[in-house]
Structures are given as structure tokens and as C-alpha cells.
Design a protein around this nucleic acid. Sequence first.
RNA 1: GGACGCGUAGCUCAGCGGGAGAGCAUUCGCUUCACACGCGAAGGGUCGCAGGUUCAAUCCCUGCCGCGUCCA
Length: 899
Amino acid sequence: MLEKNFDPAAVEPRLYKKWEDSGAFAPSDAGETFSIVIPPPNVTGSLHIGHALNNTLQDVLTRFERMRGKAALWLPGTDHAGIATQMVVERQLAAAGNEGRRELGRDKFVAKVWEWKKESGGTIVQQLRRLGASCDWSRERFTLDDGLSAAVRKVFVQLHKDGLMYRDKRLVNWDPQFQTAISDLEVEQKEVDGHYWHFAYPLADGVTYPFPIKDEEGNDTTETRDYIVVATTRPETMLGDSGVAVHPDDERYKDLVGKFVILPITGRRIPIVADEYADPAKGSGAVKITPAHDFNDFMVGKRHDLEQINILDTQANLLKFDPIPAEYQGMERFAARKAIIARAEEEGWLKQIEKTKHMVPHGDRSGVVIEPFLTDQWYVNAGELAKEAIAAVEDGRTVFEPKNWEKTYFEWMRNIEPWCVSRQLWWGHRIPAWYAEDGYIFVAETEADAHKQAEAHYGNKVALKQDEDVLDTWFSSALWPFSTMGWPENTEDLARFYPTHTLITGFDIIFFWVARMMMMGLHFTGKAPFKRVFINALVRDDKGQKMSKSKGNVMDPLVLIDEFGADALRFTMTAMSGQGRDIKLAKPRIEGYRNFSTKLWNATRFTQMNECARVDGFDPATAKLTLSRWIRGEVQKTVAAITEALEACAFDDAANALYKFIWNVFCDWYLELAKPILNGDDQAAKAEIRAMTAWVLDQAMILLHPVMPFITEELWDKTGHKDMLITHSWPKSDAGAIDAEADEEINWLIDLISEIRSIRSEMNVPGSARAPLTLSGASDVTRKRLDTHEDLILFLGRLSGVDVSETAAAGSVPFVAGEATAHLAIAEFIDIKAEEARLTKGIADFDKTIDGVRRKLDNPEFVRKAPDEVIAENRERLEDAQNGKVKLSAALERLRAAQ
RNA sequence: GGACGCGUAGCUCAGCGGGAGAGCAUUCGCUUCACACGCGAAGGGUCGCAGGUUCAAUCCCUGCCGCGUCCA
């Protein structure tokens, strides 16, 4: 006998170990394959609620396909997370009072990071086990593994050969804290309070011009100016200005184009140019141009051949040499801003200070203000690689689910910029490029090969120095679907499991990761890395706020698992994972699904108490009882619904179908209807129901297993199965199992019992009171049904008897039961007023239906144009309502006559 | 400014051309021999607003209002 409740904390680790030890997580050797690669979490990470959702869905699919007999592989692993990991270890060193990264030196520092990785890097991988993730751990990968690193070098070299990897001097997003370039995807635009400082730059060569102003009375007039006003939010950059731009159509400045200004402080002479970038409506309409420190200015500078003057060092301090005037050299950027403003005020060229809110780029990891910075970096020609990646989605080689996300993907892919892949970090794949003294670059997979190339190039041995930088972590992640399977080696895994079937991930990394995997996968394997990309929702708190540590609204999945069990959390994630909508997660919901699992547990307990043992070789198709035939059909409907839903990634539909079947169909009705039989004397019927019940319960456990693996596996074991549910086969769909006649009969029974219960409740009939039920106007079919199910009706309706008669007992309460009228003899509980109200309301309801339907049927257009079945359906509804009304009206008359 | 999405019962959401649904919450009644993490019953909605298409619109189209996210 089962305990009264399931104890997840005691059972989950045991079952997980059993699965893992059994080898069930590894794909079978033969058969159709189904593969998923995990979106590799950061090695620094720990499981958050988004991971819980994402990995639950992956596991649901993997388990489903495994049970369907496919060779299912879910390949796990982590990425090395360049900046994040380096940051963690640097912080640790600092906290322990050790020497910093630079004092330590590259080799020693990297060794420290590996040490950290060995100790703390496996956290999230352990946590995935708590969730029940059925990953094949024997294939676990890390982006810095030897094989994956070899793949990275190979890809780099090949791209270089293909002319798709090159070195270039461009503006990058520079993080002055980490002193590295970062991707624009790692830049967070934050709105901050700032100022526009309006500076007057004096015109060179004594030039003056009339500038339109308002006089004291507000009339238009002009004043003669020998300066031009520019506005800036970043005054310190003026040291690097190399031009002033005005709009070509701006009448005010028309004559100044081609003239020069003398830049204050430095005294440099810089040109005024006409460029559409200048917005006449904004500020003074003239903008200062600093090509080396602003992305827009960079473009303007290119168009007008303006000088690119860098003024900052890698820590965003002013340079310690020319062109920075001595007094500002080495100054921190924000201190420099203050100093420049003070100088402008003092010298009288600060014309105005305007408050403004504007967007300022911040590093998403460091949190500091990002500087556009002119550097030499390695770039991938993403525009070229994007072509095939776009085509693969256009022609359906890869489909997005939900489909809308294709738009996001296309939008980004079609406007893609060269991908800067070098990072000034130490933790990562070091760039396989070697420099000779003269700056000549040799790109090679190995140092030896680089030397060989150099020797061929120079005709003799020369000293080479490897590039100091490492590659962007996303560069190696982009290879994940095939590098994890052994590429570039021609492995069996690669042949069997690549391309993968489904990728499940969040929309926030479509750009970061999905797009790049598509590009690399197609370029290097010729195949799109996945057939389908399912974009899962974003988990928010119960108020719709994004969860974040700073808001303090995070829900820790591990705490939730401790409280409710992994199954409850998984079911919640699955049920709420509707397409195209964020998930607002609230605890009561998880609690509700925990209750659901308890319900199944207790239903199993009930079947055990009633000796519903599985019968070997039992074929449900041979069952004769209406109840058996009905539930077999219900099982079939559920099998079809869940299979279809999971095939389509409609996870919420699958969860809801499971919930409804197990609770509302199996527990609420089937088991209740089975009770009288199980307690009755008909041994044949009892035997059939016992075997049937055991079979239905098995089906329920099988169907629920992908979503709630722990409790179902435990029950599977407790109900005497010898095999493990995780590898048990999925039921085949069989439309022939639906028995329309049985459906109709059981639905009639359910309606009848529901009506009886409803009336008892409304009339406040105590639960212990038994009353007789009489049916009048019953057809032969109804009489037969009544006869067949008498025990059930008596038991569930708490009746003392049931008979068919055209004369009902005085003071009985009537209700409509199909073609018949039922009378519940509960005279002593009747409140005449209440009963009159009940009947009146019932008649009014029928009238409403009659009116509505009649209006349709009386409309010739409707009869002419609506489909036949809709017309027939409405005729039937009308007839039912009219019949019902007649019955209740008669009852009402009798009630009134009796008074 | 552009793109996408969302406004349906108190809350969270499903439905998406022909009878308004679920879970939670609420109310009432239940120690009914699996389950109080339960059982039975009930109340509660001009389906954001305004037009249009249609025999028929919560559902399709247009506009507006409100909210959210991403990208400039």
C-alpha cells in the first residue's frame, strides 16, 4: 500500500540516479534519431527560473521522443563565458588580497581560472539533475575542451582563407573597466539625466554671418555672429573634434560651409561641412564631429575625410601626450569633462546649459559607461555568411516556432554588421594568428604551421609573436551544434545526430547565438544546424516584472523544487508555456500542480485498495462494459491530443489535456462510476473493471511521464512494473477506440447525476438524505440505461430508488433529462418559493435560447447561406429548448395548482 | 520613430467565424469507506473603444485608446 502522500525530496535523487546508472539517458544505438543540443549555460552560472523553463521543455521533448522509440540525444554542456568568468576570478583574487591579473601574468592567471572552473564550474550542471533533465552526461562538453578548441582554430583559419576573417580598424564598443572590446549586443542603452552644453566655436579668418533671433518684442530679426554654437553631452570629446557639421539645407549656416572654426583650448583649425546627419531642429542645428569617439561622427568623418583623433587610452583617461594639452594629460574622462566645462565658462564660450535625458551605453557586465573606441580588431564578414542563413529560414530548412520570431531573425540578419570577434581578455580561445616583426600576419592552426608559413614567406626563420587576444565566447558557441558532436572529425555522432532536430531557447539570444549558429553551421557543414527553433517565453514575477536580483523578486527554482517537488515545477512551466506570451509565475500555481500530482498518487492508492491489478495480455479492446468502452475512448482522445501537442511544441495544450484527463475524467468520473462495480457482486464486471482500471492508470502514467517524470516513475515501480517508465513505449493512437454509443450513454449518465447533485445542493438536501427518483416520458433507450446503471445512479445521486412512471410523487422536484422528465422526491426539503424561482429561471433560460435561435432560423439569408450542419444544429437546439420549456412550464403549473 | 505582442470572470490565462471557458480566489454544503494538497454545488464577463466585412464577429479588416518588449 502506498503512503498517503508522495515525498519528492526522498524519491527524486534516488530515481535520477537509477535512470542515470541504467544508461537510459544515452540514445539507443539504432533507429530514427532525435537530437537537441542544450543552450550551454555559463560555466559561472547557477540555475535560475529561465533555465528551469527552458530545460524543462527540452526534457519534455526528449523524454517524449525517447518513449516514441527514437534514438533521443540531449547533449549537455557549458560555455566558458569569457568576461564573466574572468571577472569572477579577478574578484576572488582581489577579495583574497592576492596579486591581480596583470601582476600574476597570463599563464598563472589562466591556471587560476581553470582551478576555479574545476571547483565551482559544475554547479549548474548538478542543478539540472535536480530538475530531472535526462541529458546524456557521457557526452557533456565545454567550449574550451580540446576538441571544441580545435574546431575553433580550424574555423578561424578557414574563414581567414575564405577571406571572411580579417583585421580592421573600426570603432568598437570599448569597456574601460575590462579594457576589452565588447559586442553591441552586450551594450545596454540606459536613459540617464544629462546636459547639453552649448559651446561657441569662434569662426576663423574673421568670418561673420547674420543669425536669426527674436528681438525684445518677439519680432524676427538677426544678429551678426563671429562664432557657431554646437551642443554636446560629452564636452571632453571636443579635444578630438575635427569638424563641425550643418545640414545642407539649413539657410542659417549656408554661407559657412567650407569655412573654418578655431577649436577652443587646442586652437586647432577645423572645417565646417554640410552633412544631413546634422538636424536643423535639434539644438543650434550645428554639431561638433569627433570621428574617433562616436559612431555617427565616424560615418560623417568618413564622408568628409575628417581626421580621426583619438584622445583616450584603454582605461578611458585622456592620453598622456599630444594632441592632449599638457594640463589635461592623463585626466580621468569625467574629471576632464568638468575641467573643460569650467574652462569654457571662464573663457566665455559656454553659451547655455540645457537639461536633457539621453541614452548612454553601459557594459552589461561591468556597468560602466562604454566608449566608442578606435582599435584594430578581428572581424568576421557576417554579411556574407548571413546570406545562406537567411535563405535557410526563407525556404523552410529551419522553421521558427512561433513563426513570428522569423521576423526578428530576418530583421537582424539583413542589417548585420561585421562581427568583431576579438576580445582583450585572457580566458578563452587565443586567436591563432602570429605576427612577424614587420607586422605581417600568419594565420594557422598551430604555431609550427605559422612558422612554416613565415619561413616560406621570408625564406628564413623569424621570430613570431602570437596575437594576445582571445575570441568572443559566442564564436565558439556558434559552432556548438557540430563541434560538440566531434567536428571536424568525421564522427559517428556527427553523422547520426547532426543536424539537430529542435533548438529551444529564449528570444533574447536569437541574435547572440541562434543567428550565429545558423551562419557557422551552414558555412562549415553545409546544413542548417536545426530543423526547428522553438522560442520559449520569458518568466516574470506575478506582477509581470522581469525577475532580477536588484529588484529582489527572483524565484529560485531549487527552493521551489524543495517546496513542491520537481514535477510540480515542471508541470507549471509546461502548462504556462503558451506560445507568444510571457509567463507570470506565482506560487499558488505551482502549489496547484503539486496538488495535481497528489491527486494521481491517491488515485493510484485507490486502485491498489481495490485490487486493480494489471492483467498480463489484457486487451482493452475486448472490454464489454459501457464504462470500459467509454474510458478507452477517452484515453484514445488524450493520447491523440498530447501526441499532437508535443509534436507541435504546444506544451500548454499537452499539459492541459493531461490535467483534464487525469483529474476531471479519470478521477472525477471514471473512478467514481467504477466504485459501485468494484463494490458489487458481479464478478465478471468487477474483473473487467479492475483490469481496465489498471490499464488506464498505466496509460495515464505513460502520458504524464515526459512532464512529471519522478512521480510517474515511482508509481510505475510501486504498481509492480518490472521495466522503467523512462524507456517504456508511447501508446499508439487508434481512432477506432472511440465508441460513440458508449460516449453518449456515459454523457447521459454524467448529466443525470450532475442534475441530481445540483438540485440537492440548491434545495439544501442533507448529504445523508436518500430520495427516490422517477422518470416519466422515458424512451426505451433511457429505460435500458437506467436499468444498466441503476447501482451507479443510486450511489452517486444518493438515491433510495429509481423507477419509471408517468405519475410522479407529489411535491417532487422536476428537471429535464434528455427526452424524459426526472422527478426527485424531496418534498420535505422543498421551499415552495425557491422552487418556483428555480422553475421560472429555468423557463427564462430556455426562452432566451429559443429567441436567439429562432431569430437565426427565421432569417432567410441564414437558411440560404449557412452550412447545413450549422442549421441542423440550431434546429436541434431549438427543439430541445422548446421541449425543456414545456416540461418546466407544466411543472410550474402543477406547483401553483398544488398551493 | 520602426517592429512585435498583449488588452476575455476579482487575479492568471485558454479559446479565435456559428451555443462565453479553465485554474486560483470568493460563497454555500460536506469527517461520502483514494485524496481537506480533498468532494459536491453556486455566484461572477456590453470578450479595451469606434467603425467595416459577413446570413452570423470575442474571433477577420481599419482606426483609436491603454500596456509591454525589442530595435533605432
